[in-house]
Write a protein that binds this DNA or RNA. Sequence first.
DNA 1: GAGTTTGAAACT
DNA 2: CAGTTTCAAACTC
Length: 706
Amino acid sequence: MDVVSPELNILLPDEIMDTEAIVMDDDPPAESPAASGQSQPSADAPIPMETDVLAVPEIVSLCSDAPPTQRTQALTTSITTDSILCSTTSATHLTSGGLQKLSANHQIILNKVASSPGADTTRSPGTTTITPGGQKFMVTAIGKSGQSIVLQLPHTGSKPGSGQGEAKANPQHFKVLTIGGRTDLKPVMVGQAVSSASQMSTLQAQQLKTVQIAKKTQVSSAGPIKFIITKAVNNKGLTAQTSVSNVITGRVLSTSSPVTPPRTITLSETLSSNSKIAISPLKSPSKPMKPVQTVTVGGPQFKTIFPLSTSSNVQQIQVPGSRFHYVRLVTATTGSSTGQAGSHCTNSSMTAKPMVVNTAQVRMSVPIIPAQTMKQVVPKPLTSSGQVLTTQTQQRLIMPATPLPQIQPNLTNLPPGTMLAPGSGNMGYTVLPAHYVTQLQQSAYVTLASSSGFPTPTCIQTQARLPLNGLSTSDAASRPRKPCNCNKSQCLKLYCDCFANGEFCQSCNCTNCFNNLEHETERAKAIKACLDRNPEAFKPKIGKGKEGESDRRHSKGCNCKRSGCLKNYCECYEAKIMCSSTCKCVGCKNFEESPERKTLMHLADAAEVRVQQQTAAKTKLSSQISDLFTRTTPAITSGGGRMPFTFVTKEVAEATCECLLEQAEQAELIQQPQATAERMILEEFGRCLMRIISSAGKTDCPSINC
DNA sequence: GAGTTTGAAACT
DNA sequence: CAGTTTCAAACTC
């Protein structure tokens, strides 16, 4: 997968440097006559915006692809807010047409049409459509209390051959669409989808697809509408959810009149079978959100890329108990400010939820940090005045529209999972390590799961990682990160293992460390410098060898001269691989038939065996000691007994010594050899011990009689 | 723990 | 590209 999909790039040129969001409503004219009445793009505003409150109820409809006779129930709700923020994680390429099918099995077209009640919500161009077979779509309005919208897709027969089998495998496949900013997400089920709250548990257990649209209280009609749809799509349950998610930000058409053109939000994507979508409200009306603007681009390198931000809108966040730095990404805004940085994301249950998408084609990940769970350490103002703007937030764009000559050519060479976040540096990006993403996601999941009243079974997910310098994903994830000890490199050169592995320094012993978010500018520059020197600087050094060769081999090969490639100085040896033809080492002994290597291996094996034996012995000894202590404890507690050392009193010791001396005198008296004398003494000592032990539990003061 | 060795990375 | 320097990890004592 391309880092920047061509479809996405189509949208980028006008977006890259401004704060406009991606329009998600421009269906192809041929297919969307309903959308033809939308705000017409202009030179100044190529992307229609929707900013005004609708005076007329809007119809949010979800229609299936089924024939008109199988129309989806359309629920009507009055939407009082003008902007919608959604975030979506998906493998979808957002096209200008707003639709790109990746699979026929799961297609979701979410369409919001501003029209009077009763407007035709059937499957017509520009209407929301969900077409997985037998899936139900639940829409919940959270912008207004009690205005939950539940849309249910009729359990129509799936299109022949388009995932029908999958639909059968998961006959109850729900999708929840929530509109508004209400925090207490309690979807109301209508129709045959789910009729009671008690059924939500069932819903959770099943494949749940939730599309939740957070609506912002309408403050102004001038600003662009934020529209982020967040969807987490899992593949085949909760296990092995290696995925990448994509957040697509866009705008809703702006309407300034009650008689507005149809407002259409079209989100199209293809979901894998058994996929799940977890959508979250991103803000509440009372607390304007900070749009977490993230764009993830997945691919072989599992990149997560955050869009360029012209302002320093990265807020560093320190999560107590976490050894990772977190960063909150906040979009620049143009409206008034509240000065409440970091307090706008109010819905912890669904806000800033890392979404994981797993599709057959791409893997993307977008961690969106729940603001409430994080302690902001170094809030970075969105504006020069340090104020956080809360109105007319402008959604930034996902990916640069035009190629970034500085970064983009090297995007594929960043460390696995590298995330480019808006930064204040010259590059405008902050490269976040892969582990940050995972850790951040996991942390967010846990937080969300614990704090959310909304079902979150889909949130407990894990993210597989790509190999990290030859380590398997599990190894890379589980291995204890070795703290670095850098002094002069500021941890911004490849000397630093943390930096080289794409990690931030954390709990390291380094001095003058710049490998953290506090020095994002320097770090970004350093990364760029490294990539300039070597475009593959952050690629795993240990990769697959050529066909017929060893599975693992050093990409560059080592250059050892003195170590014989049998010490950890050698990167090949360190990676437990043998040197290959790519190595330029001298006196290499790290090859298959090398006797030195075999000897070393044997020694290593022997050492390992010894370690295991020692460990076993220690374990056994500890167990015995524990057992001994356990046996003596009852005597101590129940019989008023004493610890063993308490009855080896001074008197007892003196008596014992007297016995031993007497025994020695006797041996000397009978002129026994020294060896015999020693044996007699030791035997006497043994008898003394036996008497001490035997009398310990009987009397308070054991007597020693020779 | 201090000092040495080593080789990758960085620099020229 | 090659030689040199810098650097931090590995290693030794």
